[in-house]
Amino acid sequence: MTGTGTGTGTSSVTSAVTAFAELHRAGEPLLLPCAWDHASAYALAARGFRAIGTTSLGVAAAAGLPDGASATRDETLRLALTLGSGPFLLSVDAEDGFSDDPDEVGEFARELAAVGVVGVNLEDALGPADRHAAKITAVRAAAPGLFVNARTDTYWSGDGSFPETVRRLDAYREAGAHGVFVPGLTEPGAIGDLVAHLGDVPLNVLHSPAGPALPHLADLGVSRVSLGSLLYRRALGAALEAADDVRAGRVPGGGTPTYEEVRALGD
């Protein structure tokens, strides 16, 4: 299948967004790998991933900018423009929307949808829940078809309070979020309780080497598992290991695409 692109009609955009939403199935979660440039996205698509996200850390690090500081609005939109017409469904990590003004966040979402993006991830950064809810409402109004994944950072950078997590997520789904995201949540019992509380609202968690594996998350009823910045960090780590191996006179290990294979990603 192809991305929605800028030149397609409303029906094509709607069908793409619907297809993305339908990939969120409790017990059969969408595994969402996250790209940081054209090559990484197209290589993942070639491996059979129908939907691909972006990683805000990868976008920020590649540009020499801080992640989570609302500094990469232009870079994020530029990547969305590059990938929005690709042969996959694209969801963009938009940090906190790059503004505290809900109308500005709504306008950014409209720009994303216009270039073929079908989903957006918005994080609350533990700011006021009512402000984040207002952003979600603004996004739904400005880009009605965009799948809104509302993230709370209660477990990622907060104290991991389950009641506070529920309070925030309830506010976000009431504001119109299609799905909710709780990175840092890894305890199986809490994941199962949250799935039960949310009902038919898809729960997204972040894959963690210390947490449940994908089959276990499926058994718990999770609907989406994001890889976040993992692939970007692994790619960077592999590059450093290869450089060290060559310097030490060793042959670098691991898989290495050929020059021709990588070049073909740009065709």
Rank of each mutant, 00 (worst) to 15 (best):
A134E: 05
Y232P: 05
R224H: 07
P188N: 07
P202F: 14
H197D: 08
G211V: 02
S226M: 07
E241V: 10
T152S: 08
G184S: 09
A175W: 02
G221S: 05
P163Q: 06
T137Q: 07
F147N: 09
A190M: 00
G199F: 10
T165F: 14
A196I: 00
A141Y: 03
F181A: 10
P188Y: 04
G179Y: 01
R224C: 07
E164F: 14
L231P: 03
V225G: 07
R168Y: 10
P212F: 08
L236F: 12
E164L: 15
H197E: 12
S161G: 12
L240N: 05
P209F: 03
F162C: 00
D153W: 12
H132F: 12
V225P: 04
S229T: 12
P212M: 04
G145C: 11
A238L: 10
L185P: 01
L227D: 00
G211P: 13
P183L: 09
V182N: 06
P183D: 08
I136R: 09
L206V: 02
R247V: 15
E187Q: 11
G199I: 07
D193R: 05
L194T: 09
K135E: 04
N204T: 13
F181Q: 04
T154E: 10
S157T: 08
P212N: 10
P202K: 14
G179C: 14
L240F: 12
V222C: 07
G221T: 05
R247K: 14
Y172T: 11
L230F: 13
H216T: 15
L206G: 10
G184C: 09
A171K: 13
L194C: 04
L236A: 15
L231Y: 14
P212D: 08
L214V: 13
P212K: 10
G176C: 02
A177K: 09
A196Q: 08
V166T: 13
A177D: 02
T154P: 00
R247A: 15
L206S: 09
R167F: 14
P209R: 09
G221R: 02
T154R: 00
V225M: 11
D170L: 13
R247C: 12
V225D: 01
S161I: 09
H207M: 01
V201G: 13
A239N: 03
V205P: 03
A143Q: 08
D200G: 10
G228T: 08
D170Q: 14
H132T: 15
V195Q: 02
